Computed example of a mutant assay.
Amino acid sequence: MSITNEALQKLLQEIGQKKAFAEQQLSIVKQQMAIKTRESRMLQLTASEVNSLPIDTNVYEGVGKMFVCTPIPDVQKRLASETEELKLDMANLDKKADYLEKTYQNSKSSLEQVLRGGGT
C-alpha cells in the first residue's frame, strides 16, 4: 500500500518537528546539567573551606547588599540542604535527558523508516 505524497509530506514534517524539538530540549537540559555540576562543585569547595575553619570563627553570608554573621553550624546545614537539592535536580535532569534522548532516537529511526519505505 502506498502513501500519498501529501500524507507522506505531512508525516515527515511532524516527525521532523518532533525530532528537532527533542534535540533542542536535549541541548537545553545538557546546559542545565553543566550549570548544576558547577554549582555542586562550588558548594563542595565552600563546604570544605568552612569545615576547615575553627568552630568559633566568624563567618559572614551575603544577604542582598549586606553581609550577616552566621554561625558555622548554620552555614553547614544550609550547604548540606543546597547539596541535597542539587542532587535531586540532577536526578530529575538525568531522567529528562534520558527521555529526550529516547524521543530523539525514536524520531530519527521513524524518519529513516518512512524514507526507506516511502518510495515503494
Rank of each mutant, 00 (worst) to 15 (best):
E6I: 07
G64P: 02
E82I: 09
K96Q: 11
L115T: 12
V75F: 02
E61I: 12
I35Q: 12
L100G: 00
Y104E: 01
A20V: 08
D89C: 07
S109P: 01
V63P: 00
T83W: 03
L93D: 07
A7V: 11
R38G: 13
G64F: 04
I55P: 04
G119W: 10
R41H: 15
M66H: 09
G62N: 10
S110F: 00
Q105E: 04
N58K: 14
G16K: 00
P73N: 03
L79W: 03
V29Y: 06
D89Q: 07
S107R: 02
S109F: 01
Q24N: 15
A91Q: 09
G64I: 04
A7M: 11
S2I: 11
E82K: 09
C69N: 11
S48I: 14
L8W: 01
Y60G: 01
S27G: 15
E23P: 04
T4G: 06
Y99A: 15
K10C: 03
I15C: 00
T46S: 09
D74Y: 07
R38S: 11
L45F: 12
L111I: 06
S110I: 00
E84G: 15
L100H: 01
Y104T: 00
N51S: 08
A47D: 14
E101F: 02
P71S: 05
A80C: 03
L12C: 04
K19N: 05
K96C: 12
V75H: 04
Q13I: 01
R116S: 13
Y60N: 04
N58S: 12
L100A: 01
V68W: 03
Q105L: 02
S107P: 03
Q32E: 11
Q113T: 10
